[in-house]
Write a protein that binds this DNA or RNA. Structure first.
Length: 423
RNA sequence: GGUGGGGUGGCCGAGUGGCUAAUGGCAGCAGACUGUAAAUCUGCCGGGUUAACGCCCUACGAAGGUUCGAAUCCUUCCCCCACCA
């Protein structure tokens, strides 16, 4: 019944896309193990993978053992699922390095101590040992070309081309499932809906080679109401690694979620209980301008991913979006310094608009280029201490400095930077 | 291996010798309206420099060449697609 609770829970949260018929029986039969694979082609997981991580968390909460598989082996091949075109091969050194980083990210979400303690494994462990001839005989023989060609991941690529390497990917993932079934009695694989084909290939392989049972659950693709790809911002993906996406930017991503999406995201990405989420749904419907649901979402997810950094982030957010600049305390500025783009100017050096622009221009900075900055000023989108800067303004009066040394820079509605005069 | 078609800015996609930093759409940015939302309207949307007009640099798979001038023509190479072998 505990198991039915898991399926009900996933169902209510909108996380159940497809599953095998017997999965309810499996979950009902007692503690079992389920796994999800994570791709180490990037040095960090992003919020797309966060949904998968949360699936493992929910699995563990329901009393089962979560197994996170880092694809140190499969990452060298490349999963064609959901990809429109062939990707360049990743090099082994990077994949190794990434796998180690991703392992650490996964570890902070899972509990390793309990009876149903989590496990993190790397498929390089067995895939790198695999001999081509053995693989063809032991794995390849169980799949017909016809079966493989029918998979969506392959179908989608017939027009644009797919290499034998990526075409074979599903067999490696199938083999992973088999290995996990043998080694750790893992009977369930979870994943995004695009993984269904790979997962069922694994079930197929397990049945044919061992006769044992295997099961699958997939979650829907996360969408956004605006039609934009979920998890992408103008700056690129939203990463879990604080050096790639600062905790402040991370929090801002969630705070800015569309009213139409926030209820869904609360269900997907937090472990908040049903009543609480439903109350937030009501809050959004009644006084959306208070953004209570967004705040709850941002707070919970940021805490889960960045832990203690949440306090500083909220302090910084309050300072920037809370009210007058004069009310920002010295302490808040010191926090802000670490959360938003920040430059230091020598004391005595004259502060000018162009000096500030230079400091904040560059790829990935507040302004992409100096041209971009000039444009912004021309269009009236550049502010110092929340005061719009006129196109012909060049000097900045020292008296504007807050606490004698801080100057708040803003581009447009919500992009901030901080100038600090060295003491 | 052969024949034919194709590779254009973040994406899609026009453009077949000068009027092309390159039509259009999407995405993005700024302003107005707001709630750090959505929708809508307006403007912007390779980079450097300039108060500005402008000037310069880089760019149409890669490298060469023809030409006063090339995304557009020629050569070689790489990649993709279709058919044939």
């Amino acid at each position: 019944m505990r198991s039915q609770a898991l399926l009900d829970e996933l169902q209510w949260r909108g996380l159940l896309y497809q599953h095998t018929d017997e999965v309810a029986g499996l979950l009902a039969s007692g503690q079992t193990s389920g796994y999800i694979g994570f791709d180490p082609t990037a040095p960090s997981l992003h919020i797309g993978s966060l949904l998968q991580i949360m699936l493992l968390v929910r699995l563990q909460q329901a009393g089962h053992r979560p197994v996170a598989l880092v694809g140190g082996g499969t990452g060298l091949i490349g999963d064609p699922s959901g990809k429109a075109s062939e990707r360049p091969l990743a090099d082994a050194a990077h994949v190794d390095l990434n796998a180690a980083k991703i392992r650490r990210q996964l570890e902070r979400f899972l509990d390793f101590s309990r009876a149903n303690g989590a496990r993190v494994v790397n498929n390089a462990e067995w895939l790198s040992e695999l001999k081509a001839v053995d693989f063809m005989r032991d794995v390849g023989k169980h799949f017909t070309l016809n079966y493989m060609m029918q998979k969506d991941s392959v179908q989608g690529r017939l027009e644009g081309g797919i290499s034998y390497t990526e075409f074979s990917y599903m067999l490696l993932q199938a083999y992973d499932f088999l290995e996990l079934r043998r080694r750790y009695d893992v009977r369930l694989q979870l994943g995004g809906s695009d993984q269904w084909g790979n997962i069922t290939a694994g079930m197929e392989l397990i049945r044919r080679t061992t006769g044992l049972d295997a099961h699958a659950i997939t979650s829907p693709l996360v969408t956004s109401s605006s039609g934009a790809k979920f998890g992408k911002t103008e700056a690129g993906a939203v990463w879990l690694d604080p050096t790639l996406t600062s905790p402040y930017q991370f929090y801002q991503f969630w705070i800015n979620v569309d009213d139409r999406d926030v209820g869904r995201y609360l269900r997907y990405f937090t472990v908040l209980p049903r009543e609480e989420i439903e109350a937030l749904d009501g809050a959004t419907a009644e006084h959306p301008e208070k953004r209570e649901a967004q705040i709850a979402l941002a707070r919970n997810v940021t805490r889960a991913v960045h832990g203690d950094a949440l306090g500083a982030v909220e302090e910084a957010t309050g300072a920037l979006f809370g009210g007058s600049v004069l009310g920002i305390s010295q302490v808040a500025f010191e926090i802000l310094r670490n959360e938003i783009p920040h430059v230091t100017i020598e004391r005595g050096e004259p502060i000018t608009v162009s000096r500030i622009i230079d400091a904040f221009s560059g790829p990935g900075n507040l302004f992409e280029s100096k041209k971009d900055a000039k444009r912004s000023i021309q269009q009236g989108g550049f502010y110092l201490n929340q005061e719009r800067v006129a196109p012909d303004q060049s000097a900045v009066d020292d008296s504007l400095l807050l606490h004698g040394r801080f100057l708040l820079v803003r581009k447009g509605a919500r992009n901030y930077g901080l100038v600090e005069v060295a003491r």
